[in-house]
C-alpha cells in the first residue's frame, strides 16, 4: 500500500514539477556559485582589508548556503503542503478508500501507508535538494559541515511537522483551506523563528509580550525548529563569521529539546489524524 501511494504520487504533475524545479534551482545555484567563485573582490576602503583578508572559502560557502536555504525551504514546504493536503482527501473523494479498506489490511495500515507517502516523497526531494546545495557549494568553496546527521534528522522533523498538520487539517477542512492554513502557520512560524534567534542574541532586551508570543508560536507550530536545524547542521565549521548569524536566519544552536518536542508534537497530530480517520464512515 505504501508503494502504491508512492507510485500514485510519482505520477502526479505537482511532484514532477517539484522535481524539475529542484533541478532548475540546483542548476541556477551551480551557475551562481561557480560565477561567485571566480570573482576577485575589490576591497575598496583599506580599513576593511584586514577583516576581508580573514575570510576564507568556508565563509563564502556559509553565505551561499544561507542564501539558498530559505529558497529551497519554500519549494519543499509548498510541495509537502500540496501533496499532503490532497493524498487522503483524493483517495476518499474518488471513492477509492472503501476499495482499499475492503482488502485484508487494517485501517491503521491503510492510513499510514497512504498518508506517509507524501512525507517520503518530500523527504527524498529534500535530501536531493540540500545534498545538491552541499555538493555544489563544496566543489567551489571547500568546507566541512557542522553535522550531516543533524541535517537529516532535522529535515525529517521539519517536514514531519508540516506534513502532520496539513494531513490533519485535510481531514477536517476543505483541501484549499488546509493548504492556506498550513502555509500561514509555516510563514508565521518561520518569521517568529527568526525573531527568536535574534532575541537569543540579546537576552533580556526583548519586550515580554514578544518573548511570550514567540514561545507560544514555537509550541503551537514547531516546524521551524527543524528547518533551523538543517541550516545549522549544514553550515561550515571553519567559517570565521560565527557571530550574529541570527540576522541571516541561522540559529546559534538547536537545543535537542526543541527537536524532541517537534517530534512529539508531530506524533500527537498523527494520532489525532488516525483517530479522525478511524471514526470516518466511507
Amino acid at each position: 500500500m505504501f508503494l502504491n501511494g508512492i507510485e500514485q504520487l510519482l505520477r502526479r504533475k505537482i511532484v514532477l514539477t517539484a522535481f524539475i524545479a529542484t533541478v532548475v534551482f540546483l542548476g541556477f545555484y551551480w551557475w551562481g556559485v561557480s560565477a561567485a567563485s571566480s570573482v576577485e573582490f575589490d576591497l575598496g576602503n583599506d580599513s576593511d582589508a584586514p577583516v576581508m583578508s580573514m575570510l576564507g572559502p568556508a565563509d563564502a560557502a556559509l553565505a551561499a548556503i544561507i542564501t539558498a536555504g530559505p529558497l529551497a525551504a519554500t519549494l519543499l514546504t509548498a510541495l509537502i503542503i500540496v501533496i499532503g493536503s490532497t493524498m487522503l482527501p483524493e483517495e476518499i473523494g474518488q471513492g477509492r478508500m472503501p476499495f482499499w479498506l475492503s482488502l485484508p489490511q487494517s485501517r491503521l495500515k491503510v492510513f499510514l501507508s497512504t498518508s506517509l507517502a507524501p512525507l517520503a516523497v518530500s523527504f527524498a526531494l529534500s535530501v536531493i535538494l540540500f545534498a545538491g546545495i552541499f555538493i555544489i557549494t563544496r566543489i567551489y568553496f571547500p568546507f566541512s559541515p557542522r553535522s550531516i546527521p543533524l541535517v537529516l534528522i532535522s529535515m525529517l522533523i521539519w517536514l514531519a511537522a508540516v506534513w502532520a498538520s496539513v494531513t490533519l487539517l485535510s481531514l477536517i477542512v476543505k483541501k484549499v483551506a488546509s493548504m492556506l492554513i498550513t502555509f500561514f502557520l509555516a510563514a508565521v512560524a518561520s518569521m517568529f523563528g527568526g525573531i527568536y534567534e535574534i532575541m537569543q542574541m540579546f537576552p533580556g532586551d526583548a519586550p515580554d509580550a514578544l518573548v511570550t508570543v514567540t514561545r507560544v508560536i514555537m509550541y503551537v507550530f514547531p516546524a521551524d525548529r527543524g528547518y533551523r536545524g538543517v541550516i545549522y547542521g549544514l553550515i561550515p565549521k571553519e567559517a570565521v563569521i560565527t557571530e550574529n548569524l541570527a540576522f541571516f536566519g541561522v540559529t546559534a544552536n538547536v537545543p535537542p529539546v526543541h527537536l524532541i518536542y517537534a517530534v512529539c508534537w508531530s506524533i500527537v497530530l498523527l494520532g489525532l489524524c488516525y483517530w479522525k480517520f478511524r471514526s470516518m464512515d466511507f
Binding site: 474518488q94 471513492g95 477509492r96 472503501p98 476499495f99 475492503s102 485484508p104
Partner: peptide, 9 residues
C-alpha cells in the same frame, strides 16, 4: 472477500 463499490474512480 472482494468488493466492487458503486462509484470508484
Amino acid at each position: 472477500v472482494r468488493y466492487l463499490p458503486e462509484y470508484i474512480t
